[in-house]
């Protein structure tokens, strides 16, 4: 089975290219991440993949079916967690799952048999009759995840599954997603949380302005795209110091506000130098995916 294969996909709105020719493919059983700042084209890509909007050009295969031609058949075997919760506020937890299962043509008895295990998975065991209106944000997200599993899909598509959640709720979602990956589910995930992508994704692509900038395993991207060590230098004097002296120690140094980010292969000489300047606070850490992301997509705000 081909979970998802996207080839040379393009989509414009009003002359503006939102997706500018991207290609990627998911392997069975992997968790693949689409990362990018707001407006990078992630959600539009997902909408094209689900057959909810027609691409200008390019081809899409979703669970072995050509999309948009046979999008309805493809969606039979796909589960979707949308970016914004759209659970039915008039229903209890169990009714939400029951009604959603009917959209897949499932018989009520078949759905009802699945409901206890789905709620259990969502950490909502025993909440069959609880109204959606009194659930916390994290509980709603987990119920949305359970809803996406009602048809036991081959591929799960998650659009920013933990945006707006507190750390406790995020960790619980991650733990559940890891369980799904361990069970062999294929997952496509969009996010702009780097720690989320690093934890969950076997491979990922970083998108910006409708294009894929790089693709690969998180560890490999960090190794290939960026210097291994980062020294962050804080303080009022940091920008001035960075301009005058950082060049002697760091291959690259980026200033953002009152922080200078120095990217180095060996941090020792820089740390010695900084030790003699107590007015500058320092943090030495290994490079991570966020450094790669910022290097590729820039530090400018996206609105």
């Amino acid at each position: 089975m081909v979970p998802l294969k996207v080839d040379a996909l393009r989509k414009s709105y009003g002359g503006h290219q939102v997706v500018a020719g991207i290609s990627f493919a998911l392997q069975r059983g992997e968790c693949y991440g689409l990362l990018g700042p707001n407006g990078a084209g992630k959600t539009t890509t997902l909408r094209c993949c689900l057959g909810l909007t027609a691409p200008d050009s390019g081809s899409i295969t979703l669970v072995d079916e050509p999309v948009p031609a046979r999008a309805r058949e493809a969606r039979m075997r796909v589960g979707v967690v949308p970016q914004f919760d759209n659970l039915d506020p008039d229903f209890s937890c169990a009714e939400n799952l029951l009604v959603y299962g009917r959209y897949f043509g499932m018989a009520d008895t078949a759905i009802r048999t699945r409901i206890p295990q789905l709620l259990e998975f969502a950490g909502l065991a025993g909440k069959e009759d609880t109204s959606i209106r009194i659930l916390s944000g994290g509980m709603k997200r987990r119920l949305t995840l359970a809803r996406a599993l009602v048809n036991d899909p081959d591929l799960l598509i998650l659009d920013e599954p933990t945006t707006g959640l507190d750390p406790q709720a995020r960790h619980l979602i991650w733990e559940r997603l890891k369980r799904l990956i361990a069970d062999g589910k294929t997952i496509l995930l969009t996010t702009h949380f780097m720690d989320e992508a690093e934890r969950l994704c076997g491979r990922l692509a970083i998108m910006d302005a409708g294009r894929i900038m790089v693709e690969g395993a998180p560890r490999e991207l960090i190794k290939s795209q960026i210097e291994p060590q980062v020294v962050e230098v804080y303080g009022e004097d940091a920008p001035g110091w960075a301009q005058a002296e950082a060049g002697a120690f760091a291959r690259r140094c980026e200033v953002s506000g009152e922080t200078a980010f120095c990217y180095v292969d060996d941090a020792a000489p820089l740390l010695d130098h900084l030790a003699a300047r107590p007015q500058l606070a320092t943090l030495h850490r290994p490079a991570n995916l966020e450094d790669v992301f910022l290097k590729l997509t820039g530090r400018d705000l996206r609105d």
């Binding site: 909810l52 058949e73 969606r75 949308p82 759209n86 959603y100 959209y103 043509g105 048809n151």
Partner: peptide, 14 residues
């Protein structure tokens, strides 16, 4: 308001 239609369209319902 509730985006119910969008939720339904993620299932195999046109």
């Amino acid at each position: 308001v509730q985006k119910t239609w969008e939720a339904i369209m993620n299932a195999p319902v046109s």
